[in-house]
C-alpha cells in the first residue's frame, strides 16, 4: 500500500537530537518464575528504524501469521492483518519513499477500548491493548474507532493444521482481533515474533522493550534519537515509535 508521507505522520512527532548509544543486546532469558503477572512497572513499546526496513522484506508479517495462526483468506476485503507493510512517500517527491511495518500502536488513549461496549478490548497494566476474545461480540465499533486500521474481523472459520502454532489459539470467527505484542511470548520474557524475525533476517529494524526501564535499549534510543509516532496529532500516544520517517 502506498500512502502520502504527511498523511501517515500527521503533524509529526517530537524531535530530539542526540547521540546514538551502542545497543547492548543480551536476550537469552532465564526461564520465567513460576508466577508472573502484568504490572504497571513495565510499559512495553516498539521502535522501528525505517532506514533498516527493506521494502521487499516481509519477514515480520510472515512471522506474525505463523506465530499467531493468522490465516490469509485471499480476499482483500476479508483478510486479517495484524501487521502490514506500508510504502509511504512524500507528496512533492523530495525524499525517496520508505517502507515500514504498521501494527497496533498499543495507544495510551486507545479509542478502540473506549468504544467497546463489552469491555472486551482493554489496556493491560503494562500498556498492552488486548482483545478478550471470550467477551467480544463482533460489533466492530473498535474497527471504526481505530485510526490506524490495526484491527480485523475474522469473517470465516479458521482451522488448525500441522503448521499451526499449538501454543496459540486459532482465530475465532466473529471476533475482532489485532496485534497483541505477542503477549504470550512477552510474558515468558521473550521478544515478539516479528522482532525476532526481523533480527533473524539480519535487518535489526525493530526493537521491543520496556519504556519504564531507563536502561533498556528502547528507552535509551527514544531519549537520544529522533523518533516519531504515526499521526501523533491525534493524541492517542502510540507506543510504536518510528525512527527515520
Amino acid at each position: 500500500m502506498t500512502m502520502d508521507r504527511r498523511t501517515v505522520l500527521g503533524l509529526g512527532g517530537v524531535a530530539t537530537a542526540g547521540v546514538v548509544l551502542a545497543p547492548g543486546m543480551t536476550l537469552i532469558a532465564a526461564p520465567p518464575p513460576d508466577k508472573t503477572e502484568a504490572s504497571s512497572d513495565q510499559r512495553w513499546a516498539m521502535l522501528i528504524d525505517v532506514n533498516k526496513c527493506d521494502s521487499n522484506c516481509t519477514a515480520c508479517t510472515k512471522a506474525c501469521r505463523q506465530e499467531n495462526n493468522v490465516p490469509l483468506f485471499g480476499d482483500p476485503n476479508r483478510d486479517i492483518h495484524w501487521i502490514r507493510k506500508l510504502e509511504i512517500r512524500d507528496k512533492e517527491h523530495r525524499r525517496p519513499s520508505v517502507s515500514l511495518p504498521v501494527m497496533c500502536n498499543h495507544c495510551e488513549n486507545p479509542p478502540c477500548a473506549h468504544v467497546c461496549p463489552t469491555q472486551a478490548t482493554f489496556i493491560r497494566k503494562d500498556g498492552i491493548v488486548l482483545v478478550d476474545k471470550h467477551r467480544c461480540i463482533g460489533c466492530r465499533y473498535c474497527m471504526l474507532a481505530c485510526p490506524y486500521k490495526a484491527r480485523s474481523l475474522v469473517y470465516h472459520e479458521t482451522s488448525r493444521n500441522e503448521d499451526s502454532n499449538p501454543e496459540v489459539p486459532i482465530r475465532a470467527k466473529g471476533v475482532v482481533e489485532k496485534c497483541n505484542f505477542c503477549v504470550h511470548l512477552v510474558d515468558d520474557g521473550k521478544q515478539p515474533a516479528c522482532v525476532q524475525a526481523c533480527r533473524n533476517e539480519g535487518k535489526h529494524a525493530m526493537i521491543f522493550g520496556d519504556l519504564n526501564d531507563p536502561q533498556s535499549e528502547i528507552s535509551v534510543k527514544i531519549r537520544t534519537v529522533k523518533t516519531q509516532t504515526i499521526r501523533a496529532d491525534l493524541g492517542l500516544k502510540p507506543h510504536v515509535h518510528y525512527e527515520g520517517l
Binding site: P32, D34, K35, T36, E37, A38, F122, R124, K125, D126, L130, D132, H134, V183, D187, D188
Partner: peptide
C-alpha cells in the same frame, strides 16, 4: 490470565 496477565506455570 487474559486480563491481568497472571501466569502460574505450575
Amino acid at each position: 490470565t487474559v486480563r491481568e496477565g497472571l501466569r502460574i506455570r505450575s
